[in-house]
């Protein structure tokens, strides 16, 4: 029998877990800064606390660990929530935020900047802006290719996504081939990571994540209806085609923003929604906020692991997410298989 958890309790608990994970992320690191000192440093930004710590300790907490932990949470939340929404829209468990080629497009954009150096003047944001623009451009191409009159059949959309994604990644591979001594820069970007991004990137991503989350939560009822098919949703009074457009645009913006700041971090967007569904069921009114929190927690912890495990080396975060998440997911599936 399916046990239904009280959605509100789950959300409150996850908020606490996220807060704890983020605290852990701020406290743990190569340089040993005590918990109280770390808290005091954070507190000093809005409270008059006398500074009995070094300037380096302050930069480590406020300029390195804090933005990094927040960025991890934002990227995790963005990818997980977009994955949840796309899986329902496409009624396809294999759907993830990168499904329609946004990441491939973004990778091409980033690689172009890294190889050719176009985009001078935008400074440090040249790569993320190019990634963002190319990601959105890719989705637009996919959408226009798949459009039949006023409608966008989901299957066509998926297939066009695969085709365009293949084209884009071929472009990236070609650039990799040409890149010669810039190779490692592209490879780092492709591996994804949130290391050393700083507050600029947090501020870049934050509005997208907040806006997207509010929007997705507001259409959670439509998403519930869409799970049972587009025709059925239309009969329930949902303007499916326009809703689909809104979802695609929103998902593209949020994913595009996440990819542009963090590169391609796989697995979170695919698996988190599944884990959450197995846990609390498919109702989007809970699924959306819980996926968001869960994705944030996962990525904060993965980021922590990525910098602690082989310190001072940093592992690419995507390796951690896949290494830990995939077996856990398999375990969940097996367990559910036995229950059914």
């Amino acid at each position: 029998m399916h046990t239904r958890l009280n959605g509100r309790h789950v959300i409150v608990i996850l908020c606490l877990v996220l807060a704890a994970a983020m605290l852990l992320g701020v406290v743990v690191g190569e340089s040993r800064i005590s918990f109280t000192r770390a808290m005091a440093i954070i507190g000093s930004t809005f409270l008059p606390i006398p500074a009995d710590w070094s300037q380096s300790e302050e930069s480590i907490i406020l300029l390195i660990r804090l933005p990094r932990v927040i960025l991890a949470a934002l990227v995790g939340a963005a990818l997980a929530v977009c994955g949840a929404v796309l899986q329902s829209l496409f009624r396809n468990p294999m759907a993830d935020p990168f499904l329609l080629g946004i990441s491939n497009g973004a990778a091409l954009g980033a690689s172009l900047v890294l190889v050719t150096g176009v985009g001078v003047g935008v400074g440090i944001l040249g790569v993320p802006l190019a990634a963002f623009a190319f990601g959105l451009g890719t989705i637009y191409i996919v959408y226009e290719l798949a459009r039949v009159g006023n409608r966008v059949p989901v299957t066509t959309l998926l297939l066009c996504g695969i085709a365009v994604a293949a084209f884009m990644s071929a472009g990236t591979s070609f650039l990799l081939f040409l890149s010669g001594e810039n190779l490692h820069q592209i490879v780092f970007w492709l591996l994804g990571g949130i290391s050393g991004r700083g507050w600029d990137y947090v501020l870049l991503l934050l509005p997208f994540v907040i806006g997207g989350s509010v929007l997705f939560f507001s259409i959670s009822r439509s998403l519930n209806a869409l799970m049972f098919g587009e025709e059925s949703a239309q009969y329930l009074g949902i303007e499916v085609e326009s809703q689909k457009k809104i979802i695609l645009v929103a998902v593209s913006l949020v994913t595009g923003a996440a990819v542009s700041v963090s590169g391609i971090i796989g697995f979170v967007g695919l698996i988190t929604p599944h884990m959450v569904r197995l846990w609390i069921g498919p109702d989007h009114r809970i699924l959306i906020p819980v996926s968001l929190l869960f994705g944030a927690i996962l990525l904060v912890l993965a980021d922590l692991a990525s910098r602690v495990l082989l310190a001072p080396n940093e592992l690419p975060i995507g390796i951690i997410t896949a290494l830990c998440g995939a077996p856990f997911f398999a375990y969940l599936l097996r367990r559910r298989g036995r229950e059914a």
């Binding site: 190569e30 900047v113 310190a311 001072p312 080396n313």
Partner: peptide
Amino acid sequence: TVSEESVVNRAPQVIIASREHTSGL
């Protein structure tokens, strides 16, 4: 790849960096 934190923590007196081939950045 290493974290910024380890750099701050180990406080190098000198940094030598590879100039990239890309001219535009």
